[in-house]
């Protein structure tokens, strides 16, 4: 790990100022991803601005819904009574990710900002356009089993690793941020970005902006939902493909559908056309397969990840079936219902 200066921020304003004052500074909260990346020399900050003492560690109800402070640990969100009552999809996704130890340390804001687990990004002995822009992408012709099938570019085929973010995408959360130019709200779909020709940028956050909270809309998402995660082992592994689904039903007919995929792209993947086609249709496997076909028509697999296209197709059908039936995937009993 490189040597660095350490600053402990007492207020949000102090934190924003500390970052603006030092181009080599980075925020640190739980540190579960940043410290790991520093041990691999992937991140080499000149200064860490510790934000863990900021008053952003509460879950509060407000007019617009439920506000998750940026510093609320993942475990606290996962077991929060209100989250479980109204947004069990989010609790389920959180419990599908990481380990109890990591969920105790990792924060809501940090989870949004975790980096890809692409092997080449982590290995400073290889080129990587995300780590060193312009150096190349060995994943495209190398080992790319875990990589993207949707929305990738000629510079980067990395995936976003978070489970929580897939649920937040399906829930249409809003990220509140503050920076040198004040506060702004970012709809979740616009928070993460596709790699394009700037794969070094994972999000649309501007330099010096800090995440204050993640706001969940004031709706009841507790009946027809599921988080279905498929991976190489039953626990403590990143998703090869995951599906977050939330439906509103009129009997057996779908009134509205929200569907986000994890493990397949540089950001949680939504497809408005597919969601629109589900509206007003009977909740049958045929309907769900049609939606999957729309989503996966754009899929562009590489040498080792073509299996993800069929895996995603089946996961979408299974996830929508679970959500329609009101039988969400358990995160302890791993049998897929």
């Amino acid at each position: 790990m490189n040597r660095f200066e350490y600053t402990r921020a007492g207020t949000v304003q102090e934190a924003v100022q500390a970052l603006a004052a030092d181009p080599a500074a980075r925020f640190i909260a739980g540190g579960t991803n940043l410290v790991d990346l520093m041990k691999y020399n992937v991140e080499r900050p000149g200064r860490l601005v510790d934000i863990t003492r900021l008053p952003l560690d509460e879950i509060v109800q407000h007019a617009g819904g439920l506000r998750l402070g940026a510093l609320v640990p993942n475990a606290t969100v996962a077991y929060d009574p209100l989250v479980n009552e109204r947004y069990p999809l989010l609790a389920s996704a959180l419990l599908a990710g990481a380990s109890p130890q990591l969920r105790n340390a990792a924060t809501t804001g940090g989870n949004l900002l975790q980096r890809t687990r692409c092997y080449y990004f982590y290995d400073e002995g290889t080129p990587c356009n995300k780590r060193e822009p312009g150096s190349g992408c060995p994943a495209m012709t190398g080992v790319n089993r875990i990589h993207a099938i949707l929305g990738a570019s000629d510079t980067c085929i990395a995936t976003h690793p978070s489970d929580m973010c897939v649920a937040l995408a399906a829930l249409d959360a809003v990220v509140q941020v503050e920076g040198p130019d004040g506060r702004r709200s970012i709809p979740f779909a616009e928070f993460h970005r596709l790699p394009g020709d700037e794969p070094q940028r994972d999000t649309t956050l501007q330099r010096g902006e800090i995440v204050l909270s993640v706001d969940l809309p004031d709706e009841d998402f507790s009946t027809h939902y599921t988080y279905l995660k498929l991976r190489d082992r039953l626990s403590y592994a990143f998703a090869l493909v995951s599906v977050a689904a939330v439906l509103e039903m009129d009997g057996d007919t779908i009134r509205t559908a929200r569907l986000a995929l994890g493990g397949v792209a540089h950001k949680p993947w939504r497809n408005a056309e597919a969601e629109g086609r589900l509206q007003g249709k009977p909740a049958t496997p045929e309907t769900f397969r049609e939606a999957a076909d729309v989503i996966l028509a754009e899929a562009r697999p590489y040498a080792h990840n073509a299996f993800k296209v069929e895996l995603a197709r089946r996961a979408i059908v299974r996830g929508l079936s679970q959500a329609a039936a009101g039988t969400p995937q358990s995160q302890t009993d791993k049998r897929i219902a």
Partner: peptide, 24 residues
């Protein structure tokens, strides 16, 4: 943070001590 051998309990919660900076 992948193996759990470093697990300790900090303020009542188990964490991976290898990923925690002492100064924090």
């Amino acid at each position: 943070g992948q193996c759990g051998a470093c697990t300790v309990i900090v303020d009542g919660k188990r964490i991976n001590s290898c990923l925690a900076l002492a100064v924090q």
